[in-house]
Every structure is written in structure tokens, then in C-alpha cells.
């Protein structure tokens, strides 16, 4: 049988295909099984579970951001019950972690008690992504604030920001310099969110990004309680706000068009507080204590439970 000659005519090819040729059979089998699988891979996997809830982890260096991230990561994987030790970060990382099934989510409000998806939470835990940023002074502008900028402004639902976790080392906050540094960073973050809220309200409705001030290292003896942390930060931000209004202009101010210098919280007369900010701008700030290291109870990683609850309420 000379199959080579038949390639010229259509009937020849058709004959070849219906011939019961081994090659033809193999191709047919490949097609029948391959196409559905390919389609499944192409469509299902991209659409099915987009972990669209992003959280940004900010805060000064040494507050415990990377430790928190690794802890969450270790908790989400069933295998390892030990998080790695950490050092100063130089790069930001994005990790996908799961919410423990016992933590309620904010969207539960809209669900019926009998909603089967509630029961399924144990089997199919909710995933979210958290972005750990370096807190070093030199890298804040390029990786912290700019990350905040891109994540809040992106149209894509996959990269949209659901909340900001601002990590604070409560044990070191007694020190004046650390407090100033922390408060300055927080001030910058809040100022950015305020600007965004103002600009967004005119053109289109944007959802406000809530901020969690995670008062870390509550396990240490010298740590301030969350209430005191809140007071200290508010007082310090108030001072920063005042000195900002009186400070010098930037060198760029001459060349660019006059950009109205904004003050955090709008109202200059009143002392700054997070409540005022929520009232005036709509940016919600919560201060919640916790500890990454040194678990409060026996259970592994229970020190961050309340932060996870906050994350859950944002989902």
C-alpha cells in the first residue's frame, strides 16, 4: 500500500484517515481526550477561584511583618507547624494564605443560617493574598507607598486592595525616635488614603480601604496595650500634622502647578484622632493587639487570631 502518493488528492487523504491507520487512530484519540482537558485548563482554572482579596502589609522595619507573613503561611499549610525566623526584607512578596474556617467573614451577614457554603468553609477555606513589604526607610517610598498606590488604583478586580494592615512594634514605641518614625509612616499612609477618598468621591464611587493598626509583640513585658498605642500614635500624628503645615516647601513646588498641600483629617483646629478621620474622610482605622511570636494560648499561632478576624470581616 503506497500511502505517500495519496496525499495529493482530497479523497486520498480521506481514505488514509478512514483507513484504520494507527497514526490516524492515535491522532483521533489525542484529540478526543486532549481538547476537553485543554479547555478545562484554559477556562476553568482561570475563572474558578481567583483569590481576589488582597491585603497590604505595611509598617516600619522590625515590627514583625515578615514574621507575620511566614506565620500565616505556615498556618495555611497543614504540613509545617513552625515558621521560619526572619531578617530585614529587601523585597516585597505576595503570598496566598487561607483564613481558618473558624474565623467568620464579613459577607456572612448576607448569608442565611442554612447557607451550605457556611458548612463548606471547613473543607474549602477562604483564600486571600497578603503582600509583605520592606519597612526600611529607604524602601518605603519605592515599595510600600507605591505599592499602595498601584493596588488601590488598579481597575482589575484581581489586584484590588481590600485592606491595609499596618504593623507596629508596641514594645519599641516607648522610644521617642521609633514612635516618630512609626507615626510618620502611618501619617503618610493615611494621607494617601485620604487623598484617594477625596479624589474618588467626585468622579466615581470608590470603596474605602480600611486600615488595621496591628499592635504586635503584646507578649513582651514592655509592650504598651493597644489603647495606649492608639493614644500615642494619635498624639504623634497630630504633632506631625502641625509641623507639616509649617514646614518648608519641596524643591519641586516651584516647577509644578500649585498642588494644594493637604492636611490629614481636614480639620486643623481639632486634635487628630482616628475617629475624626473616619468621620471626616471615611477611612476606618482599628487598633488591635496581638503577638506573632509567643502564643497566648497553647494553639499554634493563636496570637494573631484577632487580626485574622479583622481580615475576615473585610472579606
Amino acid at each position: 500500500m503506497s500511502s505517500q502518493a495519496n496525499w495529493n488528492s482530497v479523497t486520498g487523504i480521506a481514505t488514509l484517515l478512514f483507513d484504520g491507520n494507527l497514526v490516524a487512530i492515535a491522532i483521533a484519540i489525542l484529540f478526543t481526550f486532549g481538547v476537553p482537558i485543554a479547555l478545562h485548563i484554559l477556562f476553568f482554572q482561570t475563572v474558578a477561584s481567583p483569590p481576589s482579596s488582597n491585603f497590604l502589609l505595611l509598617g516600619p522595619s522590625g515590627a514583625g511583618k515578615t514574621a507575620f507573613t511566614t506565620l500565616l503561611e505556615a498556618k495555611s499549610s497543614l504540613a509545617s507547624n513552625k515558621s521560619h525566623s526572619t531578617h530585614t526584607s529587601q523585597q516585597s512578596t505576595l503570598v496566598t494564605v487561607t483564613l481558618p474556617p473558624t474565623v467568620p467573614t464579613g459577607s456572612n451577614r448576607y448569608r442565611s443560617v442554612n447557607d451550605p457554603s457556611l458548612k463548606e468553609a471547613t473543607r474549602n477555606p477562604i483564600k486571600y493574598r497578603i503582600k509583605d513589604t520592606p519597612g526600611h526607610g529607604k524602601l518605603r517610598a519605592s515599595q510600600g507607598i507605591s505599592e499602595l498606590q498601584t493596588m488601590t488604583q488598579s481597575k482589575d478586580i484581581k489586584t484590588r486592595l481590600r485592606g491595609v494592615v499596618f504593623m507596629v512594634d508596641t514594645a519599641a514605641l516607648v522610644d521617642e525616635a521609633t514612635l516618630r518614625d512609626t507615626a510618620t509612616y502611618l501619617h503618610d499612609v493615611l494621607l494617601f488614603l485620604q487623598k484617594r477618598a477625596k479624589n474618588g468621591s467626585s468622579s466615581k464611587r470608590t470603596t474605602e480601604v480600611p486600615v488595621l493598626v496591628a499592635a504586635n509583640k503584646q507578649d513582651l513585658f514592655t509592650a504598651l496595650p493597644p489603647g495606649a498605642v492608639k493614644e500615642k500614635l494619635e498624639a504623634e500624628i497630630d504633632r506631625i500634622r502641625k509641623s507639616k503645615t509649617k514646614g518648608l516647601l519641596d524643591a519641586s513646588a516651584d516647577t509644578e502647578l500649585e498642588d494644594e498641600e493637604e492636611i490629614l483629617g481636614n480639620d486643623e483646629q481639632e486634635a487628630f484622632s482616628f475617629k475624626l478621620l473616619e468621620h471626616e474622610v471615611g477611612v476606618k482605622v482599628d487598633v488591635v493587639g496581638g503577638a506573632v511570636k509567643g502564643d497566648l494560648q497553647e494553639e499554634f499561632g493563636s496570637g494573631v487570631r484577632r487580626w485574622e478576624e479583622w481580615v475576615g470581616m473585610c472579606l
Binding site: H136, G137, K138, L139, R140, A141, S142, E176, A177, R180, D181, T184, R239, I240, S243, K244, K246, G247
Partner: peptide, 19 residues
């Protein structure tokens, strides 16, 4: 360049004087 020029800690002179 940005990394070089960015200061490690904030330079709020008035704040420091006040402190």
C-alpha cells in the same frame, strides 16, 4: 538614584526641635 537620595529616616526639623 531614588534609593540613594531617599533618607533613611524622615527629616522633619520642626518636629525634632519641638521634641
Amino acid at each position: 538614584l531614588r534609593k540613594i537620595l531617599t533618607p533613611t529616616s524622615s527629616l522633619d526639623l520642626l518636629r525634632e526641635i519641638n521634641a
